[in-house]
């Protein structure tokens, strides 16, 4: 057994232990710690596979951003008592375990009885070193062969950002507008904005303010211009219902 295999096995064991911790721990924060442990070891394994850039990205994005976010939300959701509901569904646990073991056996059988067959690619260690390292090689591949995919991914991230902001917004403006509509009638008092070509007979001109009670006690808001209530709202205030 070479040193490489030894190190790999060590890291893999810790990684699997961390993963088991995720599933077994009753406290979600402990689960998250297990997950980080697993991810860090996987990052180290990436280093063995000469994928330095991915190793660092794994740490920065997964461990540093995604899991931190999960922990963050875990704490925001119930800061005082994090719920511990593991199980109380014995049938489901048994089914899950049986399925897991079955799949593991199947995959292990498939992996162990097979050997990898495929033409080796051009990126040998020397070739990678020739362009300056893993990062440079990856960059060259990414921004030539996978240009469209990169752009689509960027678009996806943008959409996700917007989606997350929309989801996490506390209160929508449209609800406030709808609430105002339920209690107010908006009327246009501009002569050119009316249906009839004649001027309307003496419209009430509230001198003391804009709101004047109408017959049924419903207040009428008199617009001073046709655009007053149809103007686009300022940026960021608009959301379709």
């Amino acid at each position: 057994m070479s040193l490489q295999v030894l190190i790999f096995s060590l890291l893999a064991c810790v990684s699997i232990l961390g993963a088991l911790g995720v599933v077994i721990a009753r406290n979600p924060v402990h689960s998250a710690i297990g997950l980080v442990l697993s991810f860090l070891n996987v990052a180290a394994i990436y280093l063995i596979a000469r994928a330095e850039f991915l190793a660092v990205v794994q740490v920065i994005v997964y461990a540093g951003a995604v899991i931190v976010l999960v922990v963050f939300v875990t704490m925001l959701v119930h800061p005082d008592d994090l719920p511990e509901f593991h199980g109380r569904r014995p049938l489901r646990i048994v089914t899950g375990l049986v399925l897991g073991v079955a799949l593991l056996l199947e995959v292990a059988a498939a992996v162990l009885t097979r050997s990898l067959s495929g033409a080796p690619g051009p990126w040998t260690d020397e070739a990678v070193a020739a362009v300056g390292g893993n990062t440079q090689a990856l960059g060259q591949t990414l921004y030539s062969d996978y240009m469209l995919a990169i752009q689509l991914t960027a678009l996806l991230l943008l959409a996700a950002t917007i989606g997350a902001i929309v989801l996490a917004r506390p209160e929508a403006v449209s609800e406030r507008v709808a609430a105002a509509r339920r209690t107010l009638t908006i009327s246009l008092a501009h002569p050119r904005g009316l249906d009839q070509p004649e001027r309307p007979p003496a419209l009430p001109r509230p001198s003391d303010g804009q709101v004047k009670p109408a017959g049924s006690g419903r207040p009428i808001v008199l617009a001073r211009s046709a655009n007053e209530f149809t103007e686009q709202p300022a940026w960021g205030e608009w959301r379709t219902p």
Partner: peptide
């Protein structure tokens, strides 16, 4: 498979 078992058995 550990992840899958987790998805199947956990409730949180």
């Amino acid at each position: 498979i550990i992840g899958m078992v987790g998805v199947l058995t956990r409730r949180n």
